[in-house]
Amino acid sequence: MADKINLDDLKNRGLGNDPFPAPEGYFDDLSQRIQKRIAQEDESEKQPTKVVRLALRWYYTAAAIAVLGLAIWLINPFRSTTAPVAEVNEEQVQTLLADVSNQEMIDYLQMSAVDVTVSVSLTEEEQEELLEAELETFELPEDYYLDTDYLLEEYL
């Protein structure tokens, strides 16, 4: 029968040694790498317009898809001839769509609560990028930060 395992005994025989030592030289320049990353984050925070453009890019894509969908719906050759919409020809559709600005299309999508991520089939990474972009452009009230020292106060 195997000996009963006792973690304290095993610890005295070396099991308590660090099982995952850091690679050699890892700590030599860790401080510099951290400060470099801080500098990069500070630099990117100074350019908020890039973040806004990233978010808008997806709305423009969704707007284009919505326009395409609308066009297909309007000129659907299989639509019943009794429906008045079937009488609208392609030229008229193009004219109608040309009157709809990009901003109006974006506003429509936002009001309709269209899920951009579903419409444009974003990957998970792109979804996170979009979410981060939206969060970064969202400004919290000043006193929010006083109440959310989660880094300091959040307990396990």
Binding site: D18, F20, A22, Y26, F27, L30, S31, I34, Q35
Partner: peptide, 14 residues
């Protein structure tokens, strides 16, 4: 900050 990192980096990594 550099002194803080050098002091605690190994323990935090561990």
């Amino acid at each position: 900050f550099q002194l803080l990192v050098r002091t605690y980096q190994e323990r935090i990594y561990s």
